[in-house]
Structures are given as structure tokens and as C-alpha cells.
Design a protein around this nucleic acid. Sequence first.
DNA 1: TCTGGGGTCCTAGGACCC
DNA 2: TCTGGGGTCCTAGGACCC
Length: 393
Amino acid sequence: MSVKVICHIDLNAFFVRCEELKNPNIEGKPVAIGHEGRGGIVSTCSYKAREFGVRSGMPMFKAKELCPSLIILPVDFKYYQKKSHEFFNFVKRTTKLVEVASVDECYADFTNVIKDKKNPLKFFENFQQELYKETKLKCSIGIAPTKFLAKMASDMKKPMGITIIRKKDAVDMLSPLPIGDFFGIGKKTAPRLINTGINTIGDLYNLVKNDDENVKVMMGKFFYIIADLIEGKSNNELDLEPWDPKSIGNSTTLVEDTDDFHEIKQTISSLSKEVSERCVKENKLGNTIQIVIKDPEFKVKNKSIKLANPTNDYRVIYDTACKLYEKYFLGTVIRLVGVTLQNLVDPRDVVIQMTFFDYEQHEEQSQTKLLIEELNRKLDKPLLMRASEVKKK
DNA sequence: TCTGGGGTCCTAGGACCC
DNA sequence: TCTGGGGTCCTAGGACCC
């Protein structure tokens, strides 16, 4: 079996780059994309802004403190989507084997493309330049035998970088990196690892190789693939299927924290409408409806319920979300509320489940009505006590 | 004026059935 | 009267990514 050439191609400061194309005057200036209202954060920012300490995820007011001359622009997702398509189409002209990872990055299998190239590095430099000429987008390319190493590689040199990680060099190249750079170890796990003296990827690697019990407990199932990831023995199969959503949701931070029943219900209504419309557009039905809230202390709580038959009907989504809200969160002061439809399926794969009761009345009742009645039965009536519980009483 | 919104995947406990 | 274990589904919460 031969080694594959997997690339991770990452567009540099993509949202900012798009805005620069719309308005070349802002090029080279400190720019942040995001919205400025309550709870507004920096979605992404230009390299100039980063020199001031501005980072994505940072509250916008803090970014302005750090960089008073910061140019703040709202997110124009439609335009980014258009440029994103141009990017993927460009890559697909070179290889059909492309896995879209997000709006601004993809994995591509270049094994066959590179096979007969005398100077692969030169090829990738040309690729990068051609992408720039055609779309005016800048990218970093990571090249490695696996997806994980390619992803790690593309992060090493930005912007317009090209980094190759060969299998034999992988452990040496990753070992010095801070543990937080490990793709999959985030801002919760990294500090916990650092607390136990694990500062670099190399530190983690050595403990994993020694079958360290502490690390095993901390990492769970992930523990068993860490060494393979670092050594270049992990997944190199791309997922070529187009995006198939498993859930579709919509949430919003309220203008101010509130427990006002009417205001929250109105918000739930518009969130439900949006969810319903997007599910219809994607041609998806879902049978689990979830409501999520965030309280003023940022504690997130969610409640969900599964109905017998999937739906994307606004009325059912709204009624269910309201019922869940009333049952669990009425009177709670909340900061954010969201509605999500989960366990999405293709309507063609759905077999309608009918209880005998439903069947008898099916002629007169719409599917929506049946679902709402089922919901009422599930949420309003106390659960039947099981025999074992009756005995206890 | 502290900390968005879109997702995915994993874990763990309880219900329920055999 | 005391009390099995295996498997699956549902639900809640949390970590992570862009």
C-alpha cells in the first residue's frame, strides 16, 4: 500500500479577504468582522488587527479598546458563500477528491495528481498562485499522508504558506508544538493537561506511549487514537458526500436578559419559523425538537422531546418549543434562547407511524394535528407509574 | 459593555424490553 | 422474597470546531 498525498487547504483570514475584495481601501488596515451590538464578538480579523492583540472570539468592545482605529464590518455571509464556491470549484478542477470541511477549508487527495510531477513543491506553489490569480483568495496548504497531519501542517505557515509533513518527520515536527495546537484539544482540555505538566504535543505523546493511566482517564476514547494521529497512521479517506445536515437550529441572544413570557414566546416563534423554512429548503424532516436556553451566568440548558413522526411544520415546532419552555423554564431569567430540529431524515425514508387511535381518526385529522396531540399526551399527562413504583407507595 | 451562532460528536444515566 | 445482565433508545450535558 502506498502513501497518500492529502492536502488541507485553508483560506487565510477569509472573511476579511472577501471584504477587501469588495473594498480595496481597507487592505492592510486593522479590520474585524462581526456585529457590534450586545454580545457582539470578533468573528475573524485581519493580520494587521492581530498585531494589536485582537483575536477571533473576543468581545468587540475589547477589540476596540486594544485597537481604537479598528474597522468593524458586519458579516456578509452570502458574499462569502459565493467566494467559497469559487474556491471549491477551483480545487475540484485539479482533483475530484475533495472533502469540504467548512466554508473556508477543504481536504483534497492529490495522490494521483502529484504522481508524475518532477517537482511537487513547485506544483503546489503554482496551485497557490493560480488560485490567487483567479479568485484573489490567499491560502495556506498543508501536505501530509493523513487528514490530521495535513490539517496540522496548514496551520504552521500563514498566510500563503506551504508545509509538508512526511510520515517519518511527523513526531519530530509536532512534538515541540504547544498542547493547545493539537486539533481536537480545546480550551477546556488544554489547561487541564498543562496543569498536570503536559505542555507540548511531545509531552502528551510520550505519556500515551507509556500507557499513562492519568492521561487515559482525562482523554477517554480519544486516548487510543492520539499516537496514531501523531505518527501519521490515522484516517486518510476523504468524505466526498455533499453536506447532509443532522440538525438545523436557530438561536439568538436577547436584547436584554428577561423572563418575560410574551417576549420569549415571540422570539421562539420567529426562531421556529426560521428553522422550519430552512428544513423545508433542505428538504429535511426531524422528529426531535429541542429548546436551549442560556442563563445570565452562561449556564446552558436544553430540553428535547422525540415525536413518533418527523416534521418540519412551523406550527408543530413552535408548539413543542413553547411547551418545553413552559414546562421547564417558565419564570427563569434567560440571556439566549434557541430552537433546534434534530435527527433529520429524508422525507422519502419516512414511514408514517400511526397508533390505532390515530388510524381511526386519520381521515379527519391532519398530520400536524396528530403530532400536536401526541405532544400534549406526552407532556401534559403524568407518566404512568410502573408496577414497581406502585408497590413502593 | 464582558463572552455569537452555526454545527458535530461523545459520554453517561435511566427507561424499557427480553 | 429478592433481584440477573445485555442491548437499545431517549435525554441532558459538555467539548470542540469554524
